[in-house]
């Protein structure tokens, strides 16, 4: 299994977006190499702006750049970008519906040893509640590259979340990707596991093991949390009659919440949520933390079995 960090996909996508459109500019915030924006900086130094450690100013400057006809990418650790600069993102960018692209790095608990302060676990919630904002959490580096290019080509604010650690590559270069279109990465009829980010891979592993016990799980790569692919998700719920959501984020307000808000109104079915349960992260080895916070395939298997009352 080939593994690669999704931040690499972001860095590659940003370079490609810059190649396609000379109006694409990138803002550095001292962590340029860590978030892979250094690749864009090396290729297009005249379109790279270093602003230092100042998230609020980073967002405001990005807004100003968009108003002068550029396509700015403001990249930072998600926890600081979405948290510290939330008012700037809300009032300047989203209220104005400005064409600013946000790269939220170090998403999830898998950030590892840096601990709770740097592990973004709430940013999906606080980004998806903003009018005009779109939110994408790609599953692997290939998909992150596509999402980044797509972000540059759509008009309006968008938040792309990606991670620090290597995660398995589960999509191919030719796999179609469109913002707002979820798809079944595995077919099944007993339950639909709706996942985003690194949890798509964990869901696939869970589905394979469940199959050995006679449970056929559909796995949906729900990379776009806003706008949700309502039609696809409602059909999946109707077809399987049972839903498990899986995300590397607080269950409160995250992808699972978004899905269940939709299904509660249009196709209510029994559901379980896999995610972080109202607690902060900790330091540790990424894989160890994923297990400790019930974010591995085993947690998904347990959720499915509990849901289907087969435990």
């Amino acid at each position: 299994m080939v593994k690669k960090p999704t931040r690499d996909g972001y860095g590659e996508g940003l370079v490609e977006a810059g190649r396609r459109n000379p109006k694409v500019v990138a803002i550095g915030a001292d962590i340029t190499a860590s978030v892979r924006v250094n690749w864009f900086q090396e290729k297009y130094p005249e379109r790279f702006i270093s602003l230092g450690i100042a998230e609020q100013n980073q967002v405001g400057v990005a807004a100003g750049l968009s108003l002068s006809g550029h396509v700015p990418f403001a990249t930072n650790y998600g926890v600081f970008l979405a948290g510290r600069a939330w008012d700037q993102i809300r009032t300047t960018v989203c209220y104005g519906n400005l064409n600013v692209k946000f790269g939220g790095a170090h998403g999830g608990i898998s950030v590892g040893p840096d601990g709770a302060t740097h592990q973004a676990l709430e940013e999906i919630a606080v980004m998806r509640c903003l009018p005009n904002m779109q939110v994408v959490v790609p599953a692997d580096s290939i998909e992150t590259r596509k999402a980044t290019i797509a972000a540059a080509e759509m008009i309006g604010p968008i938040y792309i979340r990606f991670g620090r650690e290597k995660v398995p590559i589960i999509t191919q270069a030719e796999t179609p990707f469109k913002i707002g279109e979820a798809y079944a990465i595995r077919e099944g009829t007993d339950v639909a596991i709706i996942a985003c980010g690194a949890m798509v891979y964990e869901s696939l592993v869970a589905a394979e093991q469940l199959a050995e016990e006679g449970i056929e799980a559909m796995v949906i790569n729900n990379h776009t949390i806003k706008p949700l692919d309502a039609k696809m998700l409602i059909e999946a719920a109707a077809r399987t009659g049972a839903i498990v959501t899986a995300e590397e984020h607080q269950v409160a307000g995250g992808m699972g919440s978004a899905v269940l808000e939709l299904l509660a109104q249009h196709c209510p079915v029994p559901a379980k949520m896999v995610g972080v349960k109202d607690r902060f992260g900790e330091s540790g080895d990424p894989d160890e933390l994923m297990a400790a916070f019930d974010l591995k395939h085993t947690a998904i298997i347990n959720a499915v079995k509990t849901l289907l009352k087969r435990q």
């Binding site: 609020q56 967002v59 100003g64």
Partner: peptide
């Protein structure tokens, strides 16, 4: 929301 305009102006001038 106070304090935000100068950053936007900086972005415009940089642009």
């Amino acid at each position: 929301s106070l304090g935000q305009g100068l950053s936007i102006a900086v972005g415009m001038a940089l642009g």
